[in-house]
């Protein structure tokens, strides 16, 4: 077993797969992080990915231009995110239920559109869709072990790394980040400071749509070269769990999605040594649940310690107002 693990971890192919399967999760997790920071849960990420994956394939096949497909896919994903906003923010709907509804809408809708266009329910192989470019890095590709991992990755893998930087700056260094967190943490205070909460929430939803759109396009135009029904495979849901693990930061999102990527890639290897594939397929989700539980546990413990300290401080002062809420 140890020998097996060492052989897997020393294989450059394993790390290549890790990067490849982490990238889409990372993108949607960032999307989940940013909306959650503004205090709205985007459960429709799954639907955004599905429409992006399908629209990307259709438009790139129709125009013959992969970037046109990419843009169209992102636009479709943003539309789904904004519909969620419309219902959740303007029509006072339960955001979580709306997300569920939009995912249902998307699962059925994408298959419906695919069938109406191609006569096939499962796969878009009859459409001559394009794939996003794979990047060969000069010099690096010649380095023995490292080159095989980093060179030849799809451009989206690098965009996902870039997205971490952008979202990190957006949340921590830009004024809009302060506003986002203000809206998420204390709506009333934000309002009285002249921030329009709905505008901020719509903004974060749009950003999460862009991120989910890129992830969706990657799935059908890079990770694989077709749209297949249900291609997102619950990644939008995983992102919402990973978001908790990420603890609301862009850098945390890397670790959270790596947990999924590492186990997802490991699953392929474990299958090769004869473990039942069904159990292996369940592994990434199990690990996500575990990560989710462990992180909330740690967070709560920290919170408890903080409260305890506050309490002791209060007791030290006579006439203190007490614990508060």
């Amino acid at each position: 077993m140890i020998k097996f693990i060492i052989s897997v971890f020393s294989s450059s192919n394993y790390w290549f797969i890790v990067l490849r399967s982490t990238a889409p999760i990372l993108l949607v997790t960032l999307g989940a992080v940013i909306t959650e920071q503004a205090g709205i849960k985007n459960m429709a990420l799954e639907g955004s990915m599905l429409w992006a994956a399908l629209t990307g394939v259709i438009v790139s096949a129709a125009t013959g231009n992969v970037w046109a497909g990419f843009i169209a896919g992102i636009a479709a994903a943003v539309v789904i995110a904004l519909i969620l906003g419309l219902f959740a923010l303007k029509l006072d709907a339960n955001a979580v239920l709306c997300g569920v509804a939009l995912n249902l809408f998307s699962t059925g809708g994408t298959v419906f559109v695919l069938f109406s266009l191609t006569g096939d329910k499962g796969i878009s192989s009859s459409l001559a869709s394009k794939t996003l470019p794979f990047i060969k890095i000069p010099f690096v590709e010649n380095i023995p072990w490292v080159g095989k991992i980093f060179s030849g990755q799809n451009i989206i893998v690098w965009i996902s790394v870039l997205a971490v930087v952008v979202i990190h700056i957006m949340l921590n260094k830009a004024r809009v980040g302060v506003r986002i967190r203000a809206v998420g943490e204390n709506l009333e205070a934000a309002k009285s400071a002249g921030i329009s909460p709905n505008r901020i929430k719509f903004l974060t939803l749009a950003v999460s749509g862009v991120l989910a759109g890129m992830a969706g396009c990657f799935l059908s135009m890079g990770y694989t070269s077709n749209f297949t029904s249900g291609i997102s495979a619950g990644r939008g849901y995983v992102a919402n769990a990973a978001q908790v693990v990420a603890g609301g930061t862009a850098v945390g999102a890397i670790f959270a999605s790596l947990i999924f990527g590492l186990t997802d890639a490991m699953a392929t290897y474990l299958q090769n040594i004869g473990l039942p594939p069904e159990l292996i397929q369940a592994l990434p989700y199990v690990v996500t649940i575990l990560g989710f539980v462990v992180i909330t546990l740690i967070r709560d413990r920290k919170e408890l310690i903080r409260k305890k300290k506050l309490f002791e401080k209060d007791r030290a002062k006579p006439l203190a107002s007490g614990l508060g809420a």
Partner: peptide, 24 residues
């Protein structure tokens, strides 16, 4: 006919969206 069964899932999504909206 030539209409995919899955369009029903799409309608189901719509129904939930409408019913979940307090304003409506």
């Amino acid at each position: 006919g030539d209409v995919a069964f899955e369009f029903i899932t799409l309608l189901q999504g719509l129904i939930i969206l409408i019913l979940a909206s307090d304003k409506i």
